[in-house]
């Protein structure tokens, strides 16, 4: 009975993964829940480990035990298949290779964690090498023949002409210069401030403006007392509205009306335009950094940003300094992020 339960539990997971692998079950049929994906993946992996441990225990209670060696190998295979077929959209090979290597190390650490297990793990390998039985001898001979063939195939493959575009190591946030000159005025990036980030008294005030931005929790919500499209909106909120107008006249074609980098023309570019709602873009940069990037565009990128994969126009040729500052104000307001500060 216990054997049966154990087999069923582990078997169910393996079956699902197998169906996913051969494509009978499309990858998207098991939903990765929006907003919880990273934790869901870890949770699934953790549950699998627990179930497998339980399965192994129940099976061995029933007298069936999988050899150590195969436990390790199969678990590793499980991880590789999980990463390849369970997670969608597909994970790029470089990351899967990294994960796979680490998983292999983990399996080794598990298998060799104590002397007894290590012996059990080594045994099948030693058996093949020693070739004590006819079966093992045949296996050894097979390896002897198969290994060169596999290596030959690998070499052959690597000599085939490859038509894929080469991989690019792109610097997403290149270091900005210490200062930048826009419309004849020099801005020191370390100390410059957005002239429109002001409180009702007209003073530069981060705290005040931050209290007016869109709520960014589960979804984005306008704060009731902070509506830029209110007729009576003054000061900061009025500048946000003006920034918004500039954004929708100039920027949204690429950066999208939800500021997520998926505008009308976005997919004509590679890479696609910056996604401002991503916590890794404007949220971790200083306002002056954005100012510099907007003003100078793709062609203004420094040497280290090679291969300069940005087609953003240098907006200083189309917008005034004030307009650039207002657009930035709007972008932060809309995404609900604060610009990075150093104090």
């Amino acid at each position: 009975m216990k054997t049966l339960i154990g087999g069923l539990l582990g078997g169910a997971i393996i079956l699902v993964l197998a169906l996913l692998s051969v494509g009978i079950l499309p990858a998207t049929s098991l939903k990765l829940v929006e907003g919880y994906m990273p934790m869901q993946m870890l949770f699934e992996l953790g549950i699998s480990v627990l179930v497998f441990a339980l399965m192994s225990r129940l099976l061995s209670m029933g007298g069936i035990s999988l050899p150590r060696f195969w436990q390790g190998i199969l678990f590793w295979a499980f991880i590789l298949l999980y990463l390849k077929f369970r997670v969608y959209p597909p994970i790029p090979f470089s990351v899967r290779a990294m994960y796979g290597t680490v998983a292999l190390i983990a399996v080794f650490m598990w298998m060799s964690s104590n002397e007894e297990d290590w012996k059990k793990f080594k045994q099948p390998i030693l058996n093949v090498l020693d070739a004590g039985t006819p079966f093992h001898k045949a296996l050894r001979t097979t390896y002897l023949i198969a290994l060169p063939i596999i290596l030959w195939g690998y070499s052959y493959n690597s000599f085939l002409p490859n038509l894929d575009e080469p991989v690019e190591l792109r610097t997403v946030h290149p270091a900005p210069p210490a200062s930048t000159k826009v419309h004849g005025k020099t801005f020191v990036l370390q100390t410059s401030q957005n002239p429109y980030r002001v409180n009702p008294e007209g003073k530069y005030d981060q705290e005040y403006t931050n209290s007016k931005i869109v709520e960014q929790a589960m979804g984005r919500l306008l704060k009731p007392e902070a509506n830029p499209w209110d007729e009576k909106a003054e000061g900061y909120l009025k500048y946000v509205r003006e920034g918004g107008e500039i954004f929708f006249q100039n920027c949204h074609f690429c950066h999208g009306d939800n500021l997520n980098g998926r505008g009308l023309h976005a997919f004509a570019f590679n890479p696609i335009p910056a996604n401002f709602t991503d916590p890794g873009t404007i949220a971790q940069l200083q306002e002056t950094f954005i100012f510099w990037r907007v003003a100078k565009g793709g062609i203004g990128l420094p040497n280290e940003a090679f291969p300069w994969a940005s087609v953003m126009p240098p907006w200083e040729q189309h917008l005034t300094t004030d307009e650039i500052w207002k657009v930035i104000l709007f972008e932060y307001w809309h995404t609900g992020y604060y610009p990075r500060t150093w104090d």
């Binding site: 990273p38 959209p89 790029p92 470089s94 680490v102 991989v167 997403v172 890479p271 996604n275």
Partner: peptide
């Protein structure tokens, strides 16, 4: 060790539909 910017071929980029992977991007 999950990189913020993932090394990938343009084909992989297209399959992923953007610079950030919705699952791994968060790591």
């Amino acid at each position: 060790i999950t990189p913020h910017t993932i090394v990938m071929t343009p084909a992989e980029l297209k399959a992923m539909g953007g610079q950030q992977h919705p699952v791994l991007g968060n790591y």
